[in-house]
Design a binder for these strands. Structure first.
Lengths: 106, 106
DNA sequence: ATCACGCTTGGCAGTTTAGCCAAATGACCA
DNA sequence: TGGTCATTTGGCTAAACTGCCAAGCGTGAT
């Protein structure tokens, strides 16, 4: 495989991997409406703030979110608008799995 | 968070996670054209066949691919057509990252 | 200057993942 | 039946991930 192809696959995989955690998916969904500071997200999620901060750092490194420091707070926002569409596809996989499960159990 | 929401996030995350590996992304891209048997995929990927088999098993469990045994071979195929569209979004994240990198390095 | 607040990072323990080899299974052929 | 081919699974080690606590760091108020 070409080096270029390998790099492309790796960067895509990094994004998918970043989205491959329930808490991080929740963060992305939350950011769909508007930007949030770390403290808001932490309050909603209920985990330790250090844990939330690490999740945000993973999303940021993958390029899914961007951060902006304002005063003592850091605000995170989605960096691309298409994540919702991405979820539609993922949801169709979930649905198909559920349908086939129902068919098999009939 | 409601149990229903938690389960939804978990099943989505499982799919994302399954796609979060360069080799598995390569497999999915390869299957976009047509189904392939494990031996074909193994030859292209260059890893041990047991490794490829494990990757396929992860994709199957996530509902991304389906398998069908014919004779002594097992053929894998995509189970949903939308994965290509999913990649478009991911690619847009990659592109945006590259653009901002270029801007910063100017 | 000091303190509180918001956040990030170091470090630790437990869990999961990735890759390989070797062994087991299943299908087909001689 | 024995042998071969295609694939899966067990078992192992190294590496990565997750979550928490504690410590560090920048900002803003007193």
């Amino acid at each position: 495989m070409q080096k270029k192809d390998r790099l492309r696959l790796e960067s895509r995989a990094r994004i998918m991997k970043a989205l491959g955690h329930p808490t991080r998916l929740f963060i992305v969904e939350t950011l769909e409406s508007r930007e949030h500071c770390v403290c808001e997200l932490t309050a909603t999620i209920g985990a330790d703030i250090s844990t939330v901060s690490r999740h945000l750092s993973i999303l940021k490194q993958a390029g899914v979110v961007r951060d902006e420091k304002r005063g003592s707070q850091v605000f995170y926002a989605l960096r691309v608008p298409c994540v919702l569409r991405l979820f539609e596809c993922v949801e169709s996989i979930v649905k198909k799995s559920a349908e086939e499960y129902l068919e098999l159990s009939q």
